[in-house]
């Protein structure tokens, strides 16, 4: 729920100097296929930017361009203040990447994987070992630290992958569908880790197919469809554009819906239902704050609520609506 109540983050002024991720009209084409079509996104230092979209929307391509793995066809992009085309090495010194598929050396132990990356980043033998130890403890990998990564479960491998991407203490962290295929508790744990990193000032770009994830973690969201940004803003802003939130009530008696309906209409709401003798009532609302208003109104007229459910537009609502709108508007 904390994500829902997150205060909206105002978009930073372009060129404020505090932008850690900046893509300006980035396009990437393969022949006639436009994987990215003039995409512009940005993220301030210490914020989380989520790229939302289904498979093939261009999320991973954008991550690849920003992490300097893939050259862009046109446009301009910078990470941590460095241009992706001119200074790829400066960017690589400051980023951590956890891709969709775990990028660990399965022939090495978890510990050796961490030491290897630290050494490649220039750490001495001792510094590398202590950094590895630190991350093994943090990600609760100490018990399997000296086992070959080829024997790790999917969740373990992903955790190791994330640990590996943090070896250099990156300023900008790219997480490409970090929770796909994780069980709910591992997912929750990963979310907490991301929140911890952001509190320390890291900037995070995360791609996901789950609105819930974007909702909980992201300060701003860009919805990608067929290589284009079809919408961007805070989670609340996005939801407001596609559909309304609702409170669904079940009341304690047969005459309650009529009384409740009248009271709610008097308070400025537009409840639906209750006419056909059912005890249910659906109340569209704009902000979560209005849930309290609904309850207060019913309390004032003495109606008891036996069940209350809060409904959000889902990713499907957001995504399908936006994709549909996008298809109707000629580019």
């Amino acid at each position: 729920m904390s994500g829902l109540l997150m205060p909206p983050v105002t978009q930073p002024d372009p060129g404020s100097g505090d932008l850690m991720i900046e893509a300006d009209a980035v396009s990437k084409s393969y022949g006639t296929v436009h994987a990215l079509d003039s995409v512009s996104v940005s993220a301030r230092r210490g914020s989380v930017l989520a790229l939302l979209g289904h498979n093939g929307a261009g999320k991973t391509t954008l991550v690849n361009v920003l992490t300097t793995a893939l050259p862009l066809s046109s446009g301009r992009a910078s990470v941590a203040g460095y241009d992706v085309t001119r200074d790829p090495f400066e960017i690589r010194r400051r980023i951590g990447l956890t891709g969709q598929f775990a990028s660990v050396d399965t022939q090495l132990s978890g510990r050796d994987n961490l030491v290897l990356i630290a050494r490649l980043l220039g750490a001495g033998r001792r510094a590398a070992r202590s950094r590895a130890e630190e991350l093994l403890e943090l990600f609760e990998l100490t018990t399997v630290a000296d086992r070959r990564a080829s024997g790790y479960s999917g969740g373990l491998r992903r955790r190791l992958d994330l640990a590996v991407s943090l070896v250099g203490g990156p300023q900008v962290i790219f997480l490409d569908e970090p929770t796909t295929g994780l069980d709910p508790s591992s997912r929750l744990k990963l979310w907490e880790i991301v929140e911890g990193l952001v509190e320390q000032g890291a900037t995070v770009l995360l791609t996901t197919q789950y609105l819930e994830e974007a909702d909980r973690l992201a300060d701003s969201i860009a919805v990608l469809s067929a290589g284009k940004v079809v919408a961007s803003g805070t989670a609340d802003e996005l939801k407001a554009t596609v559909g309304r939130r609702t409170v669904t009530l079940t009341l304690d008696s047969d005459d309650a819906p009529a009384r409740a309906g009248a009271a709610l209409r008097g308070a400025g709401f537009a409840p639906v239902g209750g006419e056909d003798g059912t005890r249910g009532l659906v109340v569209p609302i704009d902000t979560t704050r209005e849930i309290a208003d609904v309850i207060r109104t019913l309390d004032q007229v003495g109606v008891e609520i036996t069940e209350l459910a809060f409904g959000e537009p889902t990713l499907d609502d957001v995504y399908l609506t936006l994709a549909e709108q996008h298809a109707r508007i000629p580019a």
Binding site: A123, L166, G169, K189, E192, G196, L197, Q200, G201, A202
Partner: peptide
């Protein structure tokens, strides 16, 4: 915070 030490790292310097 589960990740308190994750970023607290020396600059390995390349």
């Amino acid at each position: 915070a589960p990740a308190t030490v994750a970023l607290k790292t020396p600059d390995f310097g390349g």
